[in-house]
Design a protein around this nucleic acid. Structure first.
Lengths: 189, 189, 189, 189
DNA sequence: AATGAATGAGACTTCATTCAT
DNA sequence: TATGAATGAAGTCTCATTCAT
């Protein structure tokens, strides 16, 4: 709608594509504004620096994913199944969106990624974490520090997505299911 | 004696420390040769470029780790235990060497990391992979593409190591054991 | 007005002066942008590399000279005189503009100077060459490969200009006339 | 014979070949000692610097050529023919030895080439110049400053040699003869 | 809001030269 | 004589960022 967010979004899209492929170091502001079809000045109109741009992109992607996870609130469905369904969504999303996944993996392993940023992002995962907390109480899943669930879901998915991207594994529907199940075995009680 | 490898090793050590802390982008050649106590020219005597230095460091670290895993060849010990012991060693090594782990994680999620490099490194993990193959045959562990074991060991360990480093989890001996066990549940039959 | 070409031209002027005096090797980009009064980045805004800058300067100078040669199109003037007049202009120009001449000589004897560049530049000498071709047909001048006329005009002039510049000959009006006449004897029938 | 001069000569040969092809700037000491099959230190044993090496090579080549010109001292042969024969030898040598010619041309148009160097080299051309002086007195050739004969012989030859090398003229025996004759017309009375 | 020419610090890298062996 | 690892000044070039328009 508004023209403003069009440009901002174009810059985001360009950054996502380019960083996935060339990394942070290999992606210059010039590459970004050329790919986005805007001017150098425009990038600095929307973001105060390259670092801010990258950090904002990370935050928005993570928040978007959090919002996309549908938590089943049907009272008749057992907790175990609700958790499983959320788990399945998170992992599949990352596995199946390898550009985003590559960006997120790169960011989260880089010095860009501070505790402060992770804390901020974690807020949007509140509902999911509440589900997990109930899961712990009701002995459906193991009692682990919250961030460890993150490791078994997001980080495992990132790893699988990248291996698939560089051609080291063939990511069939069967394998996807096996990955989700295996990670589930890791956290379930 | 062995003065040559002294300089090369000093450059490696400096690179490892600095890249772990500041990332590839944040680590300049100048920082490296100052930290290593050598001249600019010396870096280029041993490595043809910054990229080559980083890639070589990755390869050597990975190979070193492969060599350090002791595989139990006692015929009386059951296969399941042998695999478990190897598994335990790999994960613990990464968790407990957070500087190396941070570097390796960063590298493996970056565009530096090509299939070619991974293939070359994988060769040194031959013995470990043979163990896993026997594990598959004897139905001790799940039949997974080899690189997926990598995800559940190395990549999970990298993730845990980094979360511990930035203070998002407290890595107690108990938690280490839980991590090893959980990953084991993911791959065991 | 035309501020863009001002900077480009300033870079050209500085390069011409400096390379004439210190040679390609002896002229750094830093010397050029300081002499031109622009920033390092500006040099790379107008030229993609030092080599490109030097090659472009060569091409532009050669083309400028080609344009400055006035060909007499008065039908009453005999062909012989027309050719002589063009010849005289070319040689005098080079002899009397020793900075340009030194640059051009240096370039044309260096590995910068490829057949491709020479071919491109030669296009602007079309009209002059047509005159020479008529001269050959009408037996006013010898039948020589086109580039050989180049040798007897431009290259001889470069040589004379440089010898004058380093003080090995005194370039009087008399000597200039003698040079033009002598080269004419070389090519005339 | 002596091993010393073998190495010195190997360095000379390598420099000649490499500079002809890549220019002064494009030829590093490393390239030279690799091509010559000696160590870095050896280059500095025989020459105090890169510049000295290049200058020495120029001097030696020029002196060698001077020595190779056979001056006919048969009293029955007319002066005109003696001069012609010397002229022919000089021009042909340069035309037919394009590697040396390229090096010499490049050097003589570069800031390496000072009046001092040219003066020193000129000494070896004493006998040839005496012949020319007699030619002037006996009105066989034009009265020109000595260095101008240089232009019409050496520099013209360099130019032709290079044009042939980069493929802009085809240097047949016929053309060679024409070049020698044309230059002779330029200087003869 | 948008542009893109201009900036200049700083990155990577080269290379002539030295010197301990 | 000969070696070649080591040096470090200096080179080319990039790129995040600014600002006049």
């Amino acid at each position: 709608m508004a023209k403003i967010s069009d440009k901002r979004q174009a810059i985001f899209n360009a950054t996502l594509r380019l960083v996935s492929e060339h990394g942070f170091h290999g992606t210059s502001i010039a590459m970004i504004y050329k790919e986005a079809g805007v001017s150098a000045g425009s990038v600095y109109h929307y973001f105060s620096s390259k670092d801010e741009l990258v950090v904002e992109l990370y935050k928005e992607l993570k928040k978007k994913i959090a919002k996309e996870v549908r938590i089943n609130d049907d009272d008749d469905v057992p907790l175990r199944q609700k958790i499983w369904e959320a788990w399945d969504q998170i992992i599949r999303y990352e596995i199946e969106n390898s550009i985003e996944s590559t960006f997120l993996a790169q960011f989260s392993k880089s010095p860009y990624c501070t505790m402060e940023i992770e804390r901020e992002v974690f807020i949007d995962y509140r509902k999911i974490m509440e589900l997990f907390e109930r899961g712990i109480k009701e002995m459906v899943i193991k009692r682990l520090p919250p961030m460890v669930y993150n490791t078994f879901s997001i980080d495992v998915a990132h790893s699988i997505a990248q291996k698939s991207k560089i051609g080291m594994i063939e990511l069939t529907e069967d394998l996807k299911r096996t990955i989700v199940e295996s990670t589930w075995e890791a956290i379930k009680m």
